[in-house]
Every structure is written in structure tokens, then in C-alpha cells.
Write a protein that binds this DNA or RNA. Structure first.
Ligand SMILES: [Mn+2]
Ligand SMILES: [Mn+2]
Ligand SMILES: [Mn+2]
Ligand SMILES: [Mn+2]
Lengths: 220, 220
DNA sequence: ATTTATTTTTAGACTAGTCTAAATTTTATT
DNA sequence: AATAAAATTTAGACTAGTCTAAAAATAAAT
């Protein structure tokens, strides 16, 4: 049996190692999980014994294929529940993460596949992140950050890199949501802020914002 | 903070003590929770320290008002999730209990109240058990067991006392569901079996079945 | 190439929850 | 009332997960 704690560690390792490819440091995991490095060492030893991860002392940890499958399954559940909360229970996109953090651990194949069907097989969660299908396949979307968008071009907002509540609320207050059309008017070299047009109003956003907003070019 | 394990013990004590009124034995809890009596003793001590229960050595345990509130809240969540699984995710009534056993521990006021609204404030779960409202108030229904029904009268099936998968599947295979109309044709004194009519077919059910099926008299 | 700083691991302790086996209390039976 | 049986509690041990403090290994700086 896999425990809830093991699942959370595996998910953290997956995310920290850019989707399970790179090796991850003890300290990075400790930071992400809000625990101490010594606790992480104990846990990665256990994950290694259970064949969810490969670990050699002082060398960091990587997920095995088995571990990667667990991670993807949890991410699938997390994102489907987020869609459910927004679409069916009227949660806003800044409220869903915490609850999904718990719902993702409910173990029932039938539950998650029926939920998927009930939601009509969504491809992305409320933050634009892709939802893997039953087989663990992601449908990737081409996207760039606003900071790298071309001045003069028109884009559609398709996701966020930072899904913290404060950032999402900032976007809400500036009428930026998934699907919002954005024209890039000007990039200020001094502070890397970006002037964008939303419908008929223009606003300036900081570099911080520009680095955390994903866009996709709109065909014209 | 209350733990998942504490919640499960509190719920068990509530159910065993006929909805939190009577004192409950250590052994009864151990049996219900599939643990050993010694584990129960440890836990009731802790529940008592945390003011969820009153406990005196060798005297059994009762819930405090605080403990009763916890129990009712978990039962509300359990039953609402059961309705969700049946109504929205096409689970059958014999499949929901196990999953609800886990979902009932998700802690989010907003989640459960929005779920309640989404389901249009159901008053009963798929087994006919009442769902307490936000304030913990139950809407009781008048019901009797088939074993005590009057020969010659017409009833509607409104619930089950045993919601084990095997009993529910038995009812399915005999076309008995919540809402099914049942006429009591004959009670056999020898083995306490009961002959009933369902539409145009008549069947005989054992005493076991007759004791676990709740009915409500149909006005004529 | 040493020394210093940082990262990581170990050692030992703690809590929650569980178990077995023994001791104690209560209840039932003679 | 004494004894036997059943229920309950205690004592001590174990696992999962965590922590602090100290030791060891790696990386950085002189
Ligand atoms: Mn989680
Ligand atoms: Mn998300
Ligand atoms: Mn439960
Ligand atoms: Mn039920």
C-alpha cells in the first residue's frame, strides 16, 4: 500500500524534477514539502526501497517509471477535481488548490474515471495545466510567457505558471482570465514591464506578471 | 486538529450508541472498527481528553455535545457524497459506501455546502438514511420494518437497515429499490418469512430480509 | 591544496496509532 | 460468597512520520 505522505513526496519530486526527468535535491524537496531535510532523507530511502525512486546518497533522487505513474495519476486526480470545483460547485480558480490537495488522494479508479466523463473529459484544469488521460498521456499545448511575446501581436491567455491565490486574484481584478485576448503594445526595457491591451483598455503589468502568464498566438 | 482516525472512532461511537445517546462498550467499538479492544481504550482516553467523549474506566463511553456535532458533520458529508456518486457519477447503491468512507474526511465547509446545493439539498441518501442539514438537523421519516408491516396493507420502500453490498444486490436482483411499492400478502409463522407483491409478481422473502427493509404506508 | 561553507545524512527522540500478552475489574455461575 | 468467565485496561513493543543536533560529505573560496 502507498500512503498519502508517500504520494505527496512523489508528486513533489515529479514537479521539482521538471515532470520526473531530472534529479532532485534533498533541500528542494524539504522546501517544497515544508519539512526538514532529515525527514526527506528518510522518505527517499523508503521510496527507493519501494521502487518508486532511485536514490544514491548525496546524489539526489529521481523517480522510477513506477513512481512517475503514481505522480501522473495523482496529478490527473488533482486537476480533474479542480475542474469539478470550478465548473460544478462555483469555486473560483484561486480557491480550488487546497481542497484538491486532499481530494487527489481518494483511491478509486471508478470514481475518477466517472468524474472525468461527468466533466466531459476536460483537457485542462482551471489554471490551464494539462490533464493526463486514463493512460497517463498529456495533451501539450504550445504556449509562451508574456515576457517573451512579440510586441504588436495578439494572443489568448491559456495558463498561469504561478497559481498562488494572490496572483490569481490579481488577474481577476485586472479582468484577465483563461481565454482573454491580449495585445502586446509595448515592452519597457528599463524594468521589463509590459503594456498590454485588454479589449479597449490598456494596462501595464510588471515583469513578475509577464513571467507567470502563458499565452498562445491568435490566428488572424 | 482532529485526525481522520479520531473522526472514524467518533462516528462509530455515534452509530453504536443509537445516534449518540447511549453509552458504548469498548468491545463493540473494537468490533465495528476492526481493531483490538486495547487500541480502543487508548483512543477513548484521547477522545475524552479532547472533550469529544465522556469516559470512565470500565464504564463505557458517550459522546459529548462537541463529539456529537463532529459525528453529525461526518455523517452529513458521507451521505451527501453517496448521493453525488449515485446521482451524478452513475454508481449503484451498493458501490458508494466504501468511497464515501474516505470522502467524508475532506475538510471544507464550502465544498460540502456547495455540494449540497449542487445536489439540490437532498433529504435522504441512496439507502434512505436522512441527511442532516448545515445546522445538523435531521428530517426524520416515519418508517417500519417489513417484519412489522400489516398483512393486506400497501407500502413504499423507503430505506434499508443493512446497507451491505450483498443485501443491496439481493434487492436489485429482486427488483426492489427505494420507492418500490410493496403489498404484504402473508406472514409465515413457521420461519417468519413474508410473502409480498411487487407489481404483478409475488415473492417470498426471509425473516432476515424482512427485518432490514424499511417501509412507509401508502395513503389510499 | 587547504580551509570554509553548504548540503546531506545519521543518531536519537518524540507522537499517533496499533498490536500482544499480562493484569485487573466486572459480570455471571455455581 | 466464592469461583469462573468475560470484558477491559495496562505494560511494553512496533511502524510511520517527524524533529533537533551532531557528524560526514560535497562544493565553494581562498
Ligand atoms: Mn496532497
Ligand atoms: Mn491547477
Ligand atoms: Mn471514514
Ligand atoms: Mn448510506
Amino acid at each position: 500500500m502507498i500512503t498519502l505522505t508517500e504520494e505527496n513526496y512523489i508528486k513533489a519530486i515529479y514537479h521539482l524534477g521538471s515532470n520526473g526527468n531530472e534529479s532532485v535535491n534533498t533541500n528542494a524537496i524539504a522546501e517544497a514539502m515544508q519539512t526538514k531535510a532529515s525527514s526527506v532523507t528518510d522518505m527517499v530511502k523508503k521510496l527507493s526501497e519501494k521502487n518508486y525512486a532511485d536514490y544514491k546518497k548525496y546524489q539526489g533522487v529521481t523517480l522510477t517509471e513506477r513512481g512517475r505513474q503514481v505522480a501522473v495519476s495523482i496529478i490527473r486526480k488533482h486537476r480533474l477535481w479542480e475542474v469539478f470545483l470550478v465548473e460544478k460547485l462555483n469555486f473560483s480558480w484561486d480557491e480550488v488548490h487546497e481542497v484538491a490537495e486532499h481530494l487527489e488522494h481518494i483511491k478509486s479508479e471508478k470514481l475518477i474515471n466517472q468524474l472525468d466523463a461527468f466533466l466531459e473529459f476536460p483537457k485542462h484544469d482551471p489554471h490551464g495545466d494539462p490533464i493526463p488521460d486514463k493512460e497517463g498521456k498529456f495533451q501539450h499545448i504550445e504556449k509562451i510567457i508574456l515576457a517573451k511575446a512579440d510586441v504588436g501581436s495578439v494572443y489568448k491567455c491559456v495558463g498561469v505558471d504561478d497559481s498562488s491565490s494572490s496572483f490569481l486574484k490579481y488577474l481577476d481584478s485586472n479582468k484577465i482570465a483563461l481565454g482573454t485576448v491580449i495585445s502586446v503594445l509595448h515592452k519597457e526595457p528599463y524594468d521589463n514591464s509590459v503594456k498590454i491591451a485588454l479589449g479597449d483598455t490598456a494596462i501595464v503589468v510588471s515583469q513578475n506578471v509577464a513571467k507567470n502568464l502563458y499565452l498562445k498566438k491568435v490566428e488572424s
